[in-house]
Amino acid sequence: MSASLAPECNEVKERYDSCFLKWYSEKFLRGTARSDECDPLFKQYEQCLSKALKAKGIDNMLKEAREDNRENDAEHMRPKR
């Protein structure tokens, strides 16, 4: 798995990524995903990462990117059947 841009988050990121990958291949793709069992790990990782993003000033850049991405969301969140 890839590293985090914040080295202090690597350990919890690694645990979250492994959890997610297992959930994705064994449950999500098979249509049996009920709840997101990796959520507690994600919250820990997110807490660590968000501090680093703030410290590096990336959080403000992200706001802009999210704004620019709205049309992609509108286009791809619709199911195409």
């Binding site: 590293a3 841009l5 914040a6 990121k13 997610f20 990782y45 992200l62």
Partner: peptide, 8 residues
């Protein structure tokens, strides 16, 4: 260098 998940 790094790939971080922001939300999911």
């Amino acid at each position: 260098i790094a790939v971080d998940t922001l939300s999911r």
